[in-house]
């Protein structure tokens, strides 16, 4: 019971931390995008526009909740809730410091992948239940993309698992603490695996250059076309949660988690996660969108074979380096 209580309280703290980080993250993204496009970003609400996300949330929650007449009502309502739930779910096994982890499962990595695979269900549900051509097309594209990019994602994640010999996320971090960060050494497969993970994560969370499912110039707003008010807010938030949790996973699996020079601890993990999060937005505001077929080409003709090679390389490395790995 004690462990359950501890897990629940850590979980509550971590969820609160993620959600408040996202509010600031949205502000940061808008400022950052503004800088990249030679404009100021939000400036009116609060000092340097810091309260803008709060104003946005209040505005969105006040909006009328419109449900299309022919929508499948229960699925339409369920989809945004499930999307947020699954996006938050992966955070349960991510250790933010040596002790701050909600549930330190021995199959942590598998849990992350499984929850990631579940994300396609609410996406599809929303696209289908909206009873709208654009939403359905967006939903199908999103599912096709997520299912395809799950393959390189799994392969990339296999590299730290093979190197450290455990699927427990905290175990992988401890191994990196004792040896070296996976992204740094061995250079092959470590660094390319990290890049592969980053690309697959961008695709899984539907971020530019992989935001085909939304593609506002073609599909209005993809699966969120018919969503308004609070439900739209949930979808919007789920997307940011997905990116943030993905960054945290990347930081723990490839960048040594809470490990760092001087004093290892929570601050290093937070720093790495936020840097990865910022990198996602750096890419987002720098690049253009891929075309749908280019996206599939990249996944199946490049990323997947590279992933297979990296897994082989990791296994070879473990075999050739006796004991030391």
């Amino acid at each position: 019971m004690n462990a359950l209580f501890r897990g629940a309280s850590y979980g509550a703290v971590i969820i609160t931390a993620i959600l408040s980080t996202i509010a600031i993250g949205i502000w940061f993204e808008r400022k950052f995008a503004g800088r990249m496009q030679s404009r100021l970003g939000p400036t009116i609400v609060g000092p340097v526009g810091l309260f803008q996300p709060l104003a946005d949330v209040v505005k969105l929650l006040q909006k009328e909740d419109i449900v299309p007449r022919d929508a499948d009502r229960s699925l339409f309502d369920l989809a945004p809730i499930l999307a947020t739930l699954f996006a938050l779910g992966a955070a349960a096994v991510v250790p933010f410091s040596a002790t701050a982890v909600t549930a330190d499962l021995d199959i942590g990595v598998l849990w992350i992948l499984a929850i990631g695979a579940l994300m396609v269900i609410p996406t599809f549900m929303a696209g289908w239940a909206s009873n709208n051509k654009f939403a359905l097309l967006g939903g199908m594209r999103a599912v096709a993309q997520a299912v395809s990019y799950a393959v390189p994602l799994v392969l990339a994640v296999m590299v730290p698992v093979i190197l450290s010999g455990t699927m427990q996320v905290s175990g992988i971090v401890q191994w990196q603490q004792q040896h070296h960060w996976v992204a740094l050494w061995p250079v092959i497969p470590g660094l390319p695996a990290f890049v592969l993970f980053f690309l697959a994560m961008l695709a899984e969370s539907n971020r530019i250059p992989f935001d085909i499912p939304e593609a506002e110039s073609e599909l209005v707003a993809g699966i969120t076309t018919e969503y308004t008010g609070a439900k739209f807010t949930l979808f919007y938030m789920a997307e940011y949660v997905h990116t943030l949790v993905g960054s945290a996973v990347g930081a723990s699996l490839f960048l040594g988690g809470w490990d760092g020079p001087f004093a290892p601890g929570l601050h290093w993990m937070v720093l790495k996660t936020l840097l990865l999060f910022a990198a996602v937005y750096w890419v987002r505001w720098s690049l253009l969108r891929f075309r749908s077929d280019q996206l599939m080409d990249l996944c199946w003709k490049w990323l997947t074979p590279i992933g297979v090679f990296l897994v082989l390389a990791a296994a070879t490395w473990v075999q050739l380096m006796p004991g030391g790995r």
Binding site: W111, A114, A117, L118, I121
Partner: peptide, 12 residues
């Protein structure tokens, strides 16, 4: 974990 990954995520 495998059940969720393959059956829920893949098969359905």
């Amino acid at each position: 974990g495998v059940q969720v990954l393959l059956y829920v995520g893949g098969i359905s």
